[in-house]
Design a protein around this nucleic acid. Structure first.
Lengths: 150, 150
DNA sequence: ACTCAATTACTGTATCTACAATAATTGTAT
DNA sequence: ATACAATTATTGTAGATACAGTAATTGAGT
């Protein structure tokens, strides 16, 4: 391989590759902070995420495919994850009357209350994120959004 | 794409909270791209990560605790992960002579060659990361590094 | 030397994930 | 109406992860 091409590619590689690994690494770091924080509430990050999604749609129920589409980790098994939430009475789960293939999921009162309690303790989140300024947080959002832009 | 559209949530509490979820979301997005890419090489992202760590230390071997410390996901079970790599002959694994509690792990020739092959196909990485500029990649690195500082 | 604490790694087990296979229901073309 | 395709969710299962418990070895205090 010609040297100049090698160097060029190498340099291009390094900043971008470092950024990729940085995102993965920081994502995992943050995930663990979040998981530890949520443990007090006996809920996993993905369960928390699904509850927030359902609150966003409330009072309109959502079907599994819609939830999956919005999940952070789309490959989690939504059927079983929702079943866990149902066992804790945090969501309702009814076969849809109009289309018996689909199930309508919605957050319960108990689920709403849990989210409120969690929101109230979100100070911990800010502890983790507080090391960067508001301007930096915005810049970070801008770049990450651009990165995922189709 | 703005995160709000991706996860169909209208409003975030503040820029910091959005940034946190953005990192988690983008991290997962990138993880899945990476996992799909590495599947061709019959290796998982964490195994790839450990191999890179060992290459960084080569020819000096590392013990399990050192590897764990540098892993992206520290809660993975390093013993079993390294055992998988050993089964594929990508690493060596010897009980340390001076301190029989610890095991010395080092990357093999075959492991080095695999990493070379993977590096050579990193074009796919660039497809994913290429939407942001070099300046943005650097800025991203700076902010993420600051976020995790101490 | 002996005991106890610290270090380092391994193991057990319940749970979760990835991904493919299957089932149930609905839509569509003939 | 029937056959076939499309949609939607569930299940099976191999493998991975989380986390606590155990084992082996070394170090330190007496």
């Amino acid at each position: 391989m010609p040297l100049e091409e090698d160097i060029k590619q190498d340099k291009f590689h390094n900043d971008h590759q470092k950024a990729a690994i940085n995102i993965l690494y920081t994502g995992s770091w943050l995930y663990n902070i979040n998981a530890g924080f949520l443990k007090k509430f006996d809920i996993t990050p993905e369960q928390f995420n699904v509850l927030r999604i359902l609150r966003g749609s409330f009072p309109k129920p959502m079907m599994l495919a819609e939830i999956t589409e919005r999940m952070i980790d789309k490959s989690s098994n939504c059927t079983r994850l929702v079943e866990k939430l149902r066992q804790k009475a945090l969501v309702n789960r009814f076969t849809c009357v109009n289309n018996r293939r689909q199930v309508d999921i919605s957050i319960t009162d108990k689920g709403q209350q849990l989210l409120k309690r969690i929101d109230a303790s979100q100070v911990t989140w800010l502890d983790a994120m507080g090391k960067i300024s508001k301007v930096e947080a915005r810049e970070l959002n801008r770049i990450l959004d651009k990165l995922r832009y189709e």
